[in-house]
Design a protein around this nucleic acid. Structure first.
Lengths: 321, 321
DNA sequence: TATTTTCATGAGTATTTATTCATGTATTTG
DNA sequence: CAAATACATGAATAAATACTCATGAAAATA
């Protein structure tokens, strides 16, 4: 006979197992936190399905039939092995911290200010941040999940888009006062620009000017930094105008430490993704972290979209008199 | 964690097992005769319940996760063992014939005339009848099920009432012509009565006369038989008046071979029960036989009830002129 | 580039499960 | 004899299951 036709509900098997152990439907019912009647029905169902008596009903107790004596070990051992295996997998699973790797600037500017909320919601999960500007190898680096900047096309990894950014020039209020109001994007060429070292995937000043419709011969000299984050920090310190990505300056714009210049913004051609080895995305702790990240990023993304769509500081100044 | 909280539906486990074997949800769906979508849902459900990825989804195929590699043997072996055990029990179960023991007279008069209908409905069940007037010991006699006459109070046996009988005098039409119409029950004492050997549980002539309101000094002499069935057969052969039980004479009355005398009937103080060792009543072949018996007995019982309630032959004769 | 393959997803629906409650039955016990 | 014990049974009901269908997405293939 096909086994599918004779697989009882798993809870009926469980009732059978417990009743066989207790040699009493009433006691089994107590163990299972159901009524005796429910146990009786379930045993009956299995007996009927298999066409086999499982218990000899005697007054005030039941005994196992010979058939049940053969079947109980099969069922019991299954439950025990399943429990043991799941516990073992769970034990591996919960070992050690959740190791998160991400860019240093993003760590400073976006994740760390928000991480308190994750810790609050998941106090049982120990988060270990490692920040680096290098692309990590998951196999070698013992990282559970990473936040990467890129195009999302990493083989063997599960990548989910987190944030899309905009690129635009920023400077401090002091710098803005000092240099006066630049009337056109081209006028920025007269002021100190802050650069980051060439990096193929990151937006550059030349690209921004092109988007602004400005033909650039030679860019003015200026300090160069190893990351966008540092260039932005220099801008906050009044050292010039930096080309910023929205995630890096969301909080600084809000706090008034930086001013966005001009209503010209480029969508960044690279985006932030939360990334992990294929399959890991469903591990409970990874899943929890990813869910939290995605919720936070929705909020930030809405803010970026407003920043991108809003009038620039200069445009507003021109409209007010 | 409590295992009860993480027992998936058995069909989901089955889907997991088959998908793991096939390394394809679509192929698993074919094996299980369901849609790919159903398989996908079921796997998803287990993954969600356990918080563990079971498959790495790649385009056009799936591979097992490390966790699944640990779990599949547990589940597969359970299904295999269960199947094997049930098959073994079934094989024992279907060995040999269904051995039925019953009284010889009841065999002749009631069961055998009806057995064709059981054979038709259950051609796969080989019925072996053993008839005896002794009470068989189930442990010693290798009998699966018996039909017993008695009070239903056999310890260790599962007994279900089959038939309640009535006791009344009968004779053949020829005998009826020969002796003329007896006007009262007392007049029967003038005619040859057919007796069975004394048996504590069977109704006797003296009891019937008492029920008919007749005080009996000494009963007339008559042939004695070892069973009621034989006495009835002698009555059919015109040798006298027998005290019959309804099951024995249902067909003979219908066929006109016997006539019921007087509208005095005693409910028999013994009844027919279908009896088997406790627990065996659910063995498929025993259950099938019992069910069939119970259906047949309902029909016969209705006829007995009519016979018991109907006017006797003599009463009708008195009313017709 | 269009097509094919294969899993995912959500909505919808019929069926099954998983009980509970109320009551019955058959011993046993006090 | 009344009460207690313990399983059985049927009706009722809420929840879960077990799908299907339609569609989408992401490769691979032709």
């Amino acid at each position: 006979m096909k086994i599918l036709n004779r697989l009882p509900p798993i809870s009926a098997l469980r009732a059978f197992d417990v009743a066989a152990r207790q040699l009493s439907f009433t006691k089994a019912a107590e163990v299972l936190h159901i009524t005796q009647s429910a146990v009786s029905h379930q045993i009956r169902h299995v007996e009927s399905l298999w066409g086999i008596p499982l218990f000899e009903r005697r007054n005030r107790q039941v005994t196992l039939t010979r058939e049940a004596e053969a079947l109980v070990p099969v069922i019991r051992e299954f439950f025990e092995r399943l429990d043991r295996t799941l516990n073992e997998l769970s034990a591996e699973e919960s070992k050690g911290p959740l190791r998160v790797s991400l860019l240093q600037s993003f760590a400073f500017k976006w994740l760390v200010p928000r991480l308190g909320r994750f810790n609050q919601a998941h106090s049982e999960i120990d988060v270990w941040i490692s920040s680096s500007d290098d692309v990590i190898d998951f196999n070698a680096a013992e990282v559970d999940v990473a936040i990467r900047l890129g195009l999302g096309d990493w083989p063997g990894l599960h990548a989910t888009l987190l944030l899309t950014e905009y690129v635009f020039p920023v400077c401090s209020p002091e710098q803005f006062e000092r240099m006066g109001r630049p009337q056109t994007p081209e006028k920025l060429l007269k002021h100190p620009l802050l650069y980051r070292y060439a990096d193929d995937i990151c937006a550059k000043w030349r690209d921004w000017f092109a988007d602004a419709g400005v033909e650039v011969g030679s860019l003015p000299p200026g300090t160069r930094f190893p990351s966008t984050g540092m260039a932005v920090q220099a801008a906050i310190d009044g050292q010039g105008v930096a080309l910023a990505r929205s995630a890096h300056v969301e909080d600084d714009l809000k706090a008034g430490r930086l001013i966005k210049l001009f209503d010209v913004y480029s969508p960044s051609n690279v985006k932030y993704y939360v990334v992990c080895p294929l399959g890991n995305e469903q591990h409970p702790r990874v899943a929890a972290f990813r869910e939290w990240l995605l919720r936070e990023s929705v909020i930030s993304q809405a803010a970026f979209d407003r920043v991108g769509a809003a009038k620039s500081h200069l445009k507003q100044a021109a409209a007010s008199p």
